[in-house]
């Protein structure tokens, strides 16, 4: 079983790959990219929920830091959710410029967010939750997205 850090970091890379495919498809036709955009958003939502409903809660319970870094990560999740919903709107309006403007913004926001998580939060979570690592990874793995 991989560690919390490895599991969530690998999931970041999976989302990046779908993002790249989505952009590639969108270059040819926005409408053709709709399915991949939905897939990307679904993957991201699953990742966010694995963190918000499992890992962050465990971390907060263990460290008593409820208004700390996890809250800030939730805030950035909400920024990204907002951008992702606009991506779908851009597809509906067949507005390529808007789509790529949003995807570029999302990409940078996403990457700097991932970097903070991978280099700080996950490392910290792994340190505090190492004894429960397997259980937490299993819970994240079996999560049903709401």
């Amino acid at each position: 079983m991989s560690s919390i850090k490895e599991y969530l970091t690998n999931d970041h890379r999976r989302c990046d790959d779908v993002f790249a495919k989505m952009e590639e498809r969108a270059h040819n036709s926005l409408l053709d990219a709709k399915e991949l955009t939905q897939e990307f958003i679904a993957n991201m939502e699953r990742h966010f929920q694995m963190e918000e409903r499992v890992m962050f809660l465990e971390f907060e319970t263990k460290t008593d830091m409820t208004m700390g870094p996890t809250e800030m990560m939730r805030q950035e999740h909400s920024q990204m959710r907002n951008l992702m919903s606009q991506l779908l709107e851009a597809i509906e309006n067949d507005d390529k410029d808007k789509f790529f403007g949003l995807s570029e913004t999302l990409m940078i926001l996403l990457q700097q967010h991932n970097m903070k998580e991978e280099q700080m939060l996950y490392a910290m979570a792994q340190q505090h939750l190492s004894a429960e690592s397997d259980r937490i990874v299993e819970m994240m793995d079996s999560l049903v997205v709401e």
Partner: peptide, 9 residues
């Protein structure tokens, strides 16, 4: 662990 930089604040 220093969390500075994790938030806009």
């Amino acid at each position: 662990m220093d969390f500075n930089g994790l938030s806009i604040d």
